[in-house]
Structure formats: C-alpha cells, structure tokens
C-alpha cells in the first residue's frame, strides 16, 4: 500500500473518529445543556384564554403610559419615568381548576418579552402606592385565588420606548418548567 493511500485512509478515518471522540467526551454535557435550556412555549392570541398549569389564563387589561398614568392615586408614586422609558401595566385574569393548580401559583412569575428576546421583570424602578387587585399570581392573605373562581392580578413594568409596542406577557410556573405561556398583548 502506498504512503499516500495510507494518509488518505487516515484522514477519512479522522472524519468519523474525531466527532465520535467529541461525542464520547462531551455528549452527555451537550444533552444536559439542551434539556436545561429547552423552552416549550404555548402562545395565546390577543384576548384568548389558554390552559396552562391547571389554570385558565387571559389578559384582562394592558395599558402603557409615556409619563405618569392618569389614575396616579392608585397607581404610581414615581413622579416621573426615566427618560426614554414607558410604563406598561398588565392585568391578568386566571381561574384555577383544582387545588393543585392553586398551589402551583405559589411559584409563578409574570414577565414581559419583546421580539428581540429581551425580557423585563416587574416593579423595577416603579413603586405602587395603592391597588385594587393583588400584584402576585398567588394573591394576598385576604385575596388569594380559589378553585374555579376568577382571580385578577396586575403588575407594572418599566420598558424602553422602542420595546413598549412590541412586548408579550409570559407566565412561568416552576412546576411546569420548561413549559411557559406567552400571552400576546398586540
């Protein structure tokens, strides 16, 4: 067998062996990474009601303000919003179908996500003075979700102007991870 043929065969073998070695060394880590970062998203159209984690979810109201909102008494105490930002208030209606669904609401988050994948947590930079509905999925001591009863909660977000018209609300329940619910706002 000539030397050049040996070299060619060696190179051909490398094409198979190199990926095989890589997979043997790091295949499990890759699969674990994929599992951890998997996102299973259910998308609900604007105004639609969607099942998720044993509850029905719907956007009840969605407002944005470029400055202090008109109902300041039961809204914000922030005198002015930072330049270049908008206030977004999202009110969510839910109905838990059973006790397990009510319990799942204890570990629940609402966030805003825009088309570029940026996400915002509620409450940053804004202060609620007084509200007529709770600000958490699991409510308050005297106003908590009940089985088969409608329940409302709302949260305020500060987002950049360029994102205010391009955001959706995303609900995450720890018990449902990696599944999440995206409620379209527009």
């Amino acid at each position: 067998m000539s030397a050049s043929r040996t070299y060619r065969r060696g190179l051909a073998a490398l094409v198979v062996l190199a990926p095989l070695a890589l997979w043997t060394a790091s295949g499990d880590d890759f699969l674990e990474y994929r599992t951890k970062h998997a996102v299973v998203e259910t998308v609900a159209a604007v105004g639609a009601t969607q099942d998720y984690g044993g509850s029905e979810w719907r956007i009840d109201r969605y407002d944005t303000w470029a400055g202090q909102p008109p109902d300041a008494g039961k809204a914000l105490t922030a005198a002015t919003l930072p330049q270049g930002t908008r206030l977004v208030r999202v009110r969510v209606a839910l109905r838990a179908k059973d006790e397990a669904a009510v319990k799942a609401l204890d570990r629940c988050t609402l966030e805003l996500v825009d088309g570029r994948g940026r996400r915002w947590n509620p409450g940053a930079g804004v202060t609620a003075a007084r509200r007529d509905v709770p600000t958490r999925c699991n409510g308050t001591y005297d106003n908590a979700p009940q089985v088969a009863q409608p329940f409302l909660f709302e949260q305020d977000f500060l987002v950049p102007e360029d994102a205010a018209g391009d955001v959706d609300a995303v609900i995450r329940l720890a018990a449902e991870k990696p599944a999440r619910l995206r409620l379209r706002l527009r």
Partner: peptide, 9 residues
C-alpha cells in the same frame, strides 16, 4: 439594584 434591558440605572 436589578438592571433591566435598555433602562439606565
């Protein structure tokens, strides 16, 4: 402080 995307703190 918790920093938010695009909002200067």
């Amino acid at each position: 402080a918790e920093l938010q995307p695009g909002i200067e703190s």
